[in-house]
Write a protein that binds this DNA or RNA. Structure first.
Lengths: 220, 220
DNA sequence: ATGTGTGAAGAGCTTCACAGCC
DNA sequence: GGCTGTGAAGCTCTTCACACAT
């Protein structure tokens, strides 16, 4: 099971993405290579985790030396199907939508917000971030003409199911929602809900039954 | 390993919380009891998952009948250390901070935002949602006097490490951050970062290598 | 008959230890 | 010496099947 042939664990997918940001920093610092230990320290994980993760997408390193940073970044992006910019649309230009549209980081990370929609007449026509807000009435048509791959749904809870349905109808199969309610979607559409309440509940629970974290490799 | 004596899996903690919302709906509909099958259908999980999850926090059901909804909610909240409202402070009243402060749902779910802070003079004194924005200079003192259990950090990336340090110093040991950079925190502080880029990367990856989801019990 | 509770089997991820290469 | 790559062991969570209670 080597060189990207087999199955990659979900957790590895997440970590591979999380390596990208530190790797960009390392690259900007001028380093040509990076070792699993260095990267592991930055990310607060075990070095063998890093090596195992990379082994799923190929034998990318050089023994005794480490990994070529530039090649590594390339390989990770390829493995994550992240070669080209991901085209995104934001539906709902309230506080959250606005925050996203004005968020400069997305651009650097390979996400491109190509359209924003709202149903409120006074918002349509406004320019927020890089885009001009469009009327939600044109949603399906515009999602297709802009070849949108992923839609962020940041509308009031009551509108979410309807928006979700329309997004699904338009053929977009990735949705990031800020509504915790389970949006009924066709099987081919993947929905992820950002549920801050859940995150907070988890934090509260773990703050009672404390747990520490360990790092190290071999000789701990 | 029964009746809350043993260890509860992390995934079970998450799911227990996610059952609360549907259970409130079921309660409001007037149902006295609910079966693992009903709840499983609403949450799109396997009924045996539901039963297993509940078994970690006790033998709460009645064979042949189901679970008493009201007791179930009580038991879950107790298990999650969620008996009383969780006292929260928001630091940074930009788009995201504002969205959180105006979010009515938190109140219903047992989270109480008791304070908000910003360093900008024109924001200090404004009332947003239920609270009046205070000067971030008083952060540590006020976190303690309000007995804040969890802080949401919604400040610009550049300020985040400083805010995080001060929050840690004030003795708060749960932080929800909107900055993806790993905040260096003492071991006793739990930090969760909301990383939308990661969520989107995951969606994009899985939209290529599609996977369906199955539900059912026993006879599939 | 209906629906819970749970041991045991199974799947998936992590950790370990060390062989292999520079 | 230094560091990668990886089988194997270990651990955790999930699924299954069925005994048991109403």
């Amino acid at each position: 099971m080597s060189v990207g042939s087999g199955h990659i664990p979900n957790e590895t997918i997440d970590r591979l993405f999380s390596y990208l940001r530190p790797l960009m920093c390392v690259l900007n610092r001028g380093s040509v290579t990076v070792s699993s230990r260095e990267l592991a320290e930055i990310c607060t994980v075990n070095p063998s985790v890093v090596r195992k993760d990379f082994s799923y997408i190929g034998s990318l390193g050089t023994r005794g030396v480490g990994y070529n940073v530039r090649e590594l970044i390339e390989s990770i992006r390829r493995a994550l199907k992240f070669d080209n910019d991901i085209r995104i649309a934001v539906v709902g230009v309230g506080n959250i939508g606005r925050a996203l549209l004005e968020h400069p980081r997305f651009g650097f990370e390979g996400f491109k917000i190509v359209a924003a929609f709202d149903s409120s007449p006074e918002k349509v026509g406004q320019t927020v971030g890089q885009v001009t807000v469009e009327d939600a009435a044109d949603l399906e048509k515009r999602l297709q003409s802009e070849a949108v791959q992923l839609v962020i749904v940041a509308v009031p809870e009551i509108c979410a199911p309807d928006v979700a349905r329309r997004v699904g109808d338009a053929g977009v199969n990735s949705v990031l929602s800020f509504t915790p309610c389970g949006l009924a979607m066709p099987d081919n559409v993947n929905v992820t809900s950002v549920d801050l309440s859940l995150e907070m509940a988890r934090l509260v629970y773990h703050s009672c039954s404390q747990e520490g974290l360990r790092i190290g490799d071999g000789a701990a």
